[in-house]
Design a protein around this nucleic acid. Structure first.
Length: 880
RNA sequence: GCCGCUGUGGUGAAAUUGGCAGACACGUGCGACUCAAAAUCGCAUGGGUAACCCCCAUGUCGGUUCGACUCCGACCAGCGGCACCA
């Protein structure tokens, strides 16, 4: 026996696992699919934060294996995209070469953790055999009219020199490089994600996704569904109509002007009528020059220009009102024009203030006797003062509101009851909206309508390092799909892959690639030179792991059914509205064409908390605070870093790394080893004695006290539950409690490591030890977290087969209850004594016991308790 | 501004979901072992108090309750998302 040499032992087991492939048993009846968000192999290599999520899925995978599941736990590389390309440009190296190098580094680093990845299923989004199916899916969308070309203005990053999707922006700047984006009109490919908006929203609930509420909420907000009404207003002296969308049709009688986006084409159409055209034109010019960022910083400063000579008729009041062009109206949302009700919309209020426009109050913040509160204020209860009823508080609040509104101090934006609204007076807002929509329908000028914040997915990039879009442009036939049997359409090798800046991709320079035949008519055609965005390959990769070598289909249908949906998906929260939205959309499309069998890809999603540097900042080369896992593994071992990252705090929380704290789990592992296998534990008389214990020979088998037996069973229960709930930190702390108690069994006989042996050998050794089978249960519980040490212990305990062929221990429900408990006794709610008592002690008994306690007597001051509160097995509270 | 999350020792954090606040671990102090140091082992460690009984203590203020880290209300601070979406 010897002390634990983590480096040697971990390498040994990793080697054996690779050889024996014990994880690749896919024949068991129960299946579990554990998925990590695959990394982007950057040049910097891994820091200790990256593997945290991988460790979690690995712990879960090993736990499920021990429970008898076939577990799919794959890994791959998301290697297309701007960062690889920019890295390649800076380092003057081809992106393909850079990616290959980086993957080698990443893989080497990951392998040191002893993960259960099935590397035969490794995928790489830049592999033509992989992106063939990315292109295939695109063509399917093209076939169904879901991939289309558009010339709308889109977000353009002048530094990355490419168009971007809405999801690629962060507060008006490019998410990658932080440059302010511009609006640029250009030809681009767009995926019709909005066609799936409702399903993307409703399936979050309907499919009962076990996702964190925070991420569900982010998706809901991002999709941003608004229900309302859309209607047309006549323009005096013109055939044109002004169509608006509103969620507050109930305020329509308060409309005192209307607003239109400056770039709206109706403005151009009304030019002959507009008396101040030069002024209007100037405003449009200015508005177009503004960046998103400028617009955002100017939120409070509303600007606009009246279209003089244009009058719009409010269909409800038949009154003529003015029309203004203003850049706070978004051309891309709704109809690009809105009705303005200054009394009940804060933006219209600001605008009306500036241009001195009339405000008419049409909503009373009140409820009449015959209208219930919930009808008017579904989510609002005014705060009450001391002793005040809700009714009183509502009245007081209403009075206050009314005064403010009358004084013109307050813009009231909640629902209420209609006033100044003709026949609709007295109706609650919600009811009024319904009736007004009916009226619009009857008059045939409008109807109910739904709008989304989410936009269609701008899908083309004017860059080199991405999947080529498999389309040929033909003068006669237009955009024609590359035939399926010609896929993959390979990305050609080029000398120059720097962006052109012209709005065309760098591929445009390779004439022998660009010039081709039209697949339809055989005439001259030109290939599409835009490439797909980074998010394309990651939108369906989890399907390819299931069937990575398939040449006939994206995934085999039976295999897909066997594994999908993903049972546990772990990754960063930053993907809430990007990857996770795209992947769900892509998946739903594949579902619709019958390629997959489930409407949702990820049944359970957990987001991993970031590991920050010790200084609390993000780990980054820039701050020189990066911790490399290789160094930690070298010093403390893979099991230690695995255990530490799971133990450092709640899994989903951001926590700062602390190298100092790693020694805590390292000590725990060493103690576990030293329990029975250190050179001189003292609890064995000699190696022969130890071997007897291992073989279970009579007289050497040891005893487990009832106390420890209870603790062991409790630990089995807690560790199982905690792993299920990804509460790894408390699972480990429970394992430590159990481990410490094992260690303490032989405490008196244990020799401190490095001590002079003579001194100890003179003392008696009584050979106290626990039963081997109980220690083995503990080792299995530890195995998902510290697999290397568990295997080594297991083999030292006399087993030939891997510990992962064993089964997860079950607890005995009879043995998780303690016989005696520490019963707290309170007097007037304060603990005055803690008494040892049988767990099932009755109230009478407990009271008797408590009344005999000195300290309890003292606090009772001789009085008889007026009331006794007894919670069985919990506490006793005496009130006097 | 709107939406969501979080606030507990010197530090990372626990708390069976309303029942002994601080499990487990880091750090620190003292002790054992050692010529010495490291490692290892033991004891202590929220604050007040010399100390016990005790008193105070889970961001702040209030409420419900026999009893609140936990539930309710208001506020404060921090983090994340969205941001003129009509």
């Amino acid at each position: 026996m010897s002390n634990y040499d983590h480096d040697k032992i971990e390498k040994k087991w990793q080697e054996r696992w690779r050889k024996e492939e014990i994880y690749k048993d896919y024949t068991r009846p129960k299946k579990f699919y554990a998925l990590d968000m695959f990394p982007y192999p950057s040049g910097a290599g891994l820091h200790v934060g990256h593997p945290k999520g991988y460790i979690a899925t690995d712990v879960f995978s090993r736990y499920k294996m021990l429970q008898g599941y076939s577990v799919l736990h794959p890994m791959g590389w998301d290697a297309f995209g701007l960062p690889a390309e920019n890295y390649a440009i800076v380092n003057k190296i081809h992106p393909r070469v850079a990616v290959e190098q980086n993957i080698t580094t990443f893989k080497k680093q990951l392998e040191k953790f002893g993960f259960t990845y099935d590397w035969e299923r490794e995928i790489n989004t830049t592999d033509p055999e992989y992106y063939k199916w990315t292109q295939w899916a695109f063509l399917k969308m093209f076939e169904k009219g879901l991939a289309y070309q558009s010339d709308e203005a889109i977000n353009w990053c002048p530094k990355c020199q490419t168009g971007l999707a809405l999801e690629d922006l962060e507060g008006g700047v490019c998410e990658r490089c932080g440059t302010e984006v511009e609006q640029k009109k250009m030809r681009q490919w767009v995926l019709k994600m909005t066609a799936y908006a409702d399903r993307l929203l409703y399936d979050l609930d309907k499919e009962k996704l076990n996702w964190e509420e925070a991420i569900l909420e982010q998706q809901r907000n991002w999709i941003g569904r608004s229900e309302g009404a859309q209607f047309k207003m006549a323009i005096v002296g013109s055939e044109e109509k002004l169509e608006v969308f509103t969620t507050r049709l109930d305020t329509v009688f308060g409309m005192t002007f209307a607003l239109i986006a400056p770039e709206h084409n109706l403005v151009q159409k009304l030019k002959p009528q507009i008396k101040n055209w030069s002024e209007v034109e100037k405003y449009i010019d200015q508005a177009q020059k503004k960046t998103d960022l400028q617009r955002q910083t100017e939120i409070k400063k509303k600007t606009g220009v009246e279209l003089k000579g244009v009058k719009v008729i409010n269909p409800f009041t038949k009154k003529e009102i003015s029309l203004f062009a203003s850049d706070f109206v978004l051309a891309s949302y709704g109809t690009g024009a809105v009705m303005a009700v200054p009394s009940h919309d804060s933006r219209d209020w600001d605008f009306a203030d500036k241009y001195r426009i009339l405000k008419i109050q049409v909503i009373d913040p009140v409820f009449e006797e015959n209208i219930s509160v919930s009808n008017v204020y579904p989510s609002f209860i005014p705060s009450t003062l001391k002793g005040e009823t809700i009714e009183d508080a509502t009245k007081r609040w209403r009075k206050q509101e009314l005064e403010r509104i009358k004084k013109g101090e307050r813009c009231f934006t909640d629902d209420g009851v209609l006033i100044n609204s003709g026949e609709y007076n007295g109706l609650a807002s919600a009811e009024a909206r319904k009736k007004m929509i009916k009226w619009l329908e009857k008059e045939k000028i409008g109807q109910s309508a739904v709008n989304y914040k989410m936009r269609d997915w701008v899908f083309s990039r004017q860059r080199y390092w991405g999947e080529p879009i498999p389309i040929v442009h033909c003068e006669k036939c237009g955009a024609v799909a590359v035939p399926y049997n010609e896929l993959p359409l390979k990305l050609p090798e080029v000398e120059q892959y720097e962006p052109t800046g012209t709005g065309e991709g760098p591929l445009v320079g390779i004439s022998e690639w660009v010039n081709t035949k039209c697949p339809k008519c055989g005439g001259p055609g030109k290939r599409e030179t835009n490439t797909m965005p980074q998010w394309a390959g990651s939108s369906w990769y989890y399907l390819r792991y299931i069937d990575p070598k398939n040449k006939q289909a994206l995934v085999d249908k039976q295999k897909e059914k066997d594994w999908m949906p993903v049972d546990l998906y772990v990754g960063g929260a930053e993907h809430a509205t990007r990857h996770l939205l795209y992947a769900r959309f892509w998946h739903k499309f594949l579902y619709d064409i019958g390629a997959v069998s489930t409407p949702e890809p990820f049944k359970r999603l957990v987001h991993v908390g970031l590991i920050q540097a010790e200084d609390g900042r993000k780990m980054s080369k820039r701050w020189d605070n990066v911790i490399n896992p290789d160094d930690v593994i070298e010093q403390y071992g893979a099991d230690s870093i695995r255990l530490y990252e799971m133990f450092m705090g709640p899994f989903t929380q951001n926590i700062s790394w602390s190298t100092k704290s790693v020694v805590g789990v390292k000590r725990f592992l060493d103690r576990t080893w030293n329990c029975f296998f250190a050179d001189y534990t003292g609890i064995f008389i000699n190696d022969e004695d130890r071997n007897k214990w291992i073989k279970g020979e009579a007289g050497a088998e040891g005893v487990t006290s009832h106390e420890i037996e209870v603790l062991l069973n409790k630990t089995i229960k807690k560790v199982s539950e905690d792993i299920e709930n990804l509460k790894f930190n408390t699972a480990i702390s429970q394992l430590m409690v159990l481990g410490n108690s094992f260690y303490k069994v032989g405490e008196k006989e244990r020799i401190p490591l490095g001590s002079s042996l003579d001194k100890y050998y003179s003392e008696s050794i009584n050979g106290q030890r626990i039963k081997k089978s109980d220690f083995e249960k503990f080792v299995i519980l530890l195995a998902p977290f510290a697999p290397h040490m568990a295997e080594e212990l297991w083999s030292n305990l006399g087993h030939d087969k891997s510990i992962f062929t064993e089964s997860w221990p079950e607890y005995d429900p009879a043995l998780i209850k303690e016989d005696t408990i520490q019963l707290p006794v309170q007097v007037n709610g304060k603990v005055r004594a803690v008494l040892s008592a049988p767990a099932d002690i009755s109230e009478e008994e407990a009271k008797k016991l408590a009344l005999s306690d000195e300290n309890v007597k003292k606090w009772l001051e001789g009085k008889e308790p007026k009331k006794v509160i007894f919670v069985k097995g919990r506490l006793l509270n005496l009130l006097v």
